[in-house]
């Protein structure tokens, strides 16, 4: 749910500028995967704060629980067992959820004015009261995050606790994380903090440790420190170079105004043709011949 008190930089299905004269600090959440122990306290805190209760699911023989993101589970831990080096098993645990892209594909695809907003601080939020349930946000998202509720047919995802952030608190998952694997602050500070962590990891033998802040979507307001920064796919299929699909770009980019213009021109062409050439009428000869 969105908050009116935060300044808005972008609004879905809106062709004029949003109220954005005030500048706000850009915020970010940094998830250090090398520090995560997979306790799922963040999942619990998310449900607690947001008053969500997912159904008790089934055991699928893996640690992932629930199995996937849902309208009730806005974040899930994804466990991957990998052997980057032969004989050295690693358990990579990634907290999955909305990445809060600087160029959000969901917002680009959304046809309902104000159903998706991007605040000046970088948080991308869904206004469910404006959501029409079309699912276009799913086609726009490069990270497969939005979920349509079976109960009310509206789209849901992580809000980055926009309600908490608006009053100067950190997101619930950050507050609860027992190992400090999740930290929150200004985007600048988080990048700086990550640099220190990456240096540390490199010293400990993770030569490819890197910050995940993918430029294909303009950077994100949820970032990861990855031990294997050169292979983000190892982390339960985190995309290496995420970007809005060119099909969505085409559909929501040039075609929207051009096609609308084409329809308008066709109507005017007809009108002016009638005024210029006049109606096509049966001539007297035909009247005579056929009578």
């Amino acid at each position: 749910m969105a908050l009116q008190s935060l300044d808005i930089t972008a609004r879905s299905a809106t062709t004029t500028p949003s109220p954005s004269v005030r500048g706000t600090l850009q915020v970010a959440k940094l998830i250090d995967i090398s520090k995560c122990i997979g306790c799922k306290a963040c999942q619990t805190a998310c449900m607690e704060w947001n008053d969500l209760r997912d159904e008790v699911g089934h055991n699928h023989g893996v640690y992932d629980n629930p199995r996937d993101l849902t309208d009730q589970s806005w974040t899930v831990m994804r466990f991957s067992e990998v052997e980057v080096e032969q004989g050295r098993l690693e358990w990579l645990i990634r907290k999955d959820g909305c990445m809060h892209c600087a160029e959000p594909g969901c917002l680009k695809a959304c046809p309902s004015p104000g159903a998706i907003v991007q605040y000046a601080n970088g948080i991308v939020d869904f206004h469910e009261e404006n959501c029409i349930g079309c699912g276009y946000c799913i086609t726009g998202c490069p990270f497969n995050i939005p979920r349509i509720s079976k109960k009310d047919h509206k789209a849901y995802k992580c809000t980055l606790c926009s309600d908490r952030v608006a009053v100067g608190m950190e997101p619930a998952c950050v507050k609860t994380c027992p190992t400090g694997a999740i930290v929150f602050g200004s985007k600048e500070d988080m990048i700086h903090h990550a640099e220190g962590r990456i240096e540390d990891l490199k010293e400990r033998g993770y030569g490819n440790a890197a910050l995940y802040d993918p430029p294909g979507v303009g950077g994100t307001h949820v970032m990861y420190v990855l031990q294997h920064g050169d292979q983000p796919e190892l982390y339960a299929g985190l995309p290496k170079d995420p970007h809005i699909s060119p099909l969505v770009g085409l559909w929501k980019g040039v075609t929207k105004p051009l096609m609308s213009l084409g329809i308008g021109l066709a109507v005017f062409a007809g009108f002016f043709h009638y005024v210029t050439a006049g109606p096509k009428e049966v001539d007297a000869h035909d009247e005579e011949k056929s009578s």
Partner: peptide, 9 residues
């Protein structure tokens, strides 16, 4: 059209 372009919403 209503769902295609904001001008027609």
């Amino acid at each position: 059209l209503a769902l295609f372009h904001p001008a027609f919403f």
